[in-house]
Simulated assay, not measured.
Amino acid sequence: MSQWPDTRILDLLGIDLPIIQGPMAGVTGPAMVIAACNAGGLGSMPAAMLDVEQLRQALTTISEQTDKPFNVNFFCHQPPVLDEQRAEAWKQHLKPYYEELGADFDAPTPVSNRTPFDDAACQVLEQMRPEVVSFHFGLPEKSLLDRVKATGAKVLSSATTVEEAIWLEQHGCDAIIAMGYEAGGHRGMFLSDDLNSQVGLFALLPQVVDAVSVPVIAAGGIGDARGIVAAFALGASAVQLGSAYLFTPEAKISAAHHRALRTAKESQTAVTNLFTGRPARGIVNRVMREIGPMTPMTPAFPLAGGALMPLRAKDEADFSNLWAGQGFPLGRELSTAELTRHLAEETLAQLNGRGRS
């Protein structure tokens, strides 16, 4: 008999621990996924920044090194139409930084891209057949989703409001990730672009649990066993952590990101659209302070980052996205496997009245 108070996610996904390592594009590689899976949790491989061959290779590597279920995560945004006038206005707004740093303003603007889920990616899933597939920004069109489900994969997606959670259940999700406003990285919002609709996890979670019949996974601001226990108390069947895994040696983060995570204060994150054109939470740096974290000037997602790339090459700390959630100061210097196991052990100890983390 399981020691966990709710085993629906364990039963649904075939995992031992109700702990999901959050997919973090550009940060999470196969090594982190493999370690999380082999420790008993659910490792999650982000695919939004991979081409088809890179995706196939990543899934092959994971499959060769773990026999546990793992998750593959995709974005579901609509590819943007380039608005050249808006793109030029955005670059002009950044021109003083180009001049200060000695970046070539007249060179062609690099392309910043995230790949939405499409037929080519779906073909890889049909070949590799991972046990879990998750989506961000809603779900893919029905024909693609039907093909994913036909592989036998369980489907997850992020909801940032009760309305999104209900929509996801109605459109075929097997479980829903309730993403609180505290969470790092891109907001999963897809039914509205109004940031005023976004609420904290402990307000959102019980309302989502009450509104849907599928299991709910809590995400946002959870960094230790205390947060996991609280999430279970509010009806979660599992938790997803991202920022906690940024402190592991498997995290592929820059030196600037590494320093920021270990020196910034707990109040120094903000939701910003400067780096991609879509709201995402990260540690505040110079460009966010001076322009303001949110501006209507940015090109559509994910094109906004292109004009920042030459500046990032000159000064990564001040001009790159340093994604992190509000709970990042709870991070500990452990390996992915150690972190996953420690979180589980400490949570069970608290649930059974044997201590606190």
Score class of each variant (00 low, 15 high):
Ala48Arg: 04
Phe75Asp: 03
Arg86Gln: 15
Ala304Cys: 04
Phe247Pro: 02
Leu303Tyr: 02
Asp224Ala: 10
Phe117Asn: 01
Ala230Lys: 04
Val124Leu: 07
Cys173Val: 06
Arg356Tyr: 15
Phe117Ile: 08
Met24Tyr: 04
Ala218Asn: 06
Ser2Ile: 07
Ala48Glu: 08
Asn38Tyr: 06
Asn321Ala: 14
Val33Phe: 12
Thr340Leu: 03
Asp193Cys: 06
Glu100Ser: 12
Leu13Ile: 07
Met32Lys: 08
His342Pro: 04
Glu333Ser: 13
Leu204Gln: 08
Gln326Cys: 01
Val216Pro: 01
Thr347Gln: 05
Gln207Ala: 08
Gln123Val: 12
Asp318Pro: 02
Ala103Leu: 05
Ala337Ser: 15
Thr7Ala: 10
Ser2Arg: 08
Val199Phe: 05
Glu169Pro: 00
Ser335Leu: 06
Gln326Asp: 06
Pro30His: 13
Met128Asn: 12
Val209Gln: 04
Arg129Lys: 15
Ala35Asn: 06
Val111Thr: 15
Gly277Asp: 00
Gln198Asp: 13
Met294Phe: 07
Thr276Pro: 05
Gly152Ala: 07
Ala264Gly: 03
Ser112Phe: 15
Lys68Ala: 13
Phe105Gln: 13
Asp174Tyr: 11
Ala317Pro: 07
Ser112Val: 09
Met189Val: 10
Pro30Gln: 12
Cys76Ser: 13
Leu274Gln: 00
Leu139Thr: 03
Gln57Leu: 12
Asp318Gly: 09
Gly305His: 01
Pro69Ile: 07
Leu261Asn: 00
Tyr245Asp: 05
